[in-house]
Amino acid sequence: MIELDNVSLAYAGRTGPVLALEGADIKVAKGEFAAVVGPSGCGKSTLMKLVSGLVKPTKGVVKVNGYQVNGPVKLAGMAFQNSNLLPWRTVIENLMLPLEIVEPYRSNFRSKKDEYRAKGEKLLDTVGLTGFGDRFPWELSGGMQQRASLCRSLIHEPALLMLDEPFAALDAFTREELWCVMRDVWERLRFTVVLVTHDLREAAFLADTIHIMSARPGRIIESRTVDFARPRDLDVCYSSPFTDLVHTLRNKIAEVRQA
């Protein structure tokens, strides 16, 4: 599904070119849940922009679905740390925003508006926001806004979901709740996910594979598979294999921060 082959990206900084990413190699299979972890400022978000085609690599090739990425990939859903909901639209209208832009929904948006609305309501049900469609985003708590934002990134049934620290701004309980929401949605639809995070437990709980990045310029220094049985229960976070994994990851990151 996603293939990065020796990809480097430099952008023009104030004192000459800054290397954000150097020789990154990543492969993500179709339907795989991949997590990218690393110290802050290591170019994780740059990686997301490369995959979704918002920036072009200075070296190397990015392939999505077997094709080289040359512009916005048009099939990716995205969610960020801020929910970025539009305050002048109700929750359900926010959800339908991607449908107003992506084909084939765009052309028949007017005629099928009711159908899409129902679709949005159904998606809201799955994340526990039943009946909140007609509220405005500011009437929702931070966790609920983030749920709505997830729904917005999923409404057009993207083959690829890009998540950039989507749960970072939430409190610990809400975060775990949303991990489970994410887990359930993914178990059901099995799209490909790239999750950028600095929460190692989050990565270990949700992902099939974890890619560890070095400090800037970012490089993938290790990729490991996580083989806890699915569907995973939150209790797995307190088992010793899980803690061991998080501990190893933690040491690895401490190492690259030193270097």
Partner: peptide, 29 residues
């Protein structure tokens, strides 16, 4: 316009005009 929001829309294949109509203009009101 929040750059992240623009990223969300552009990753969906939105044109500059789309971004302006859906986000920019309501936001500027």
């Amino acid at each position: 316009i929040e750059p992240e929001l623009e990223d969300v829309l552009r990753a969906l294949g939105a044109s500059k005009l789309d971004v302006m109509r859906k986000v920019g203009i309501p936001r500027a009101m």
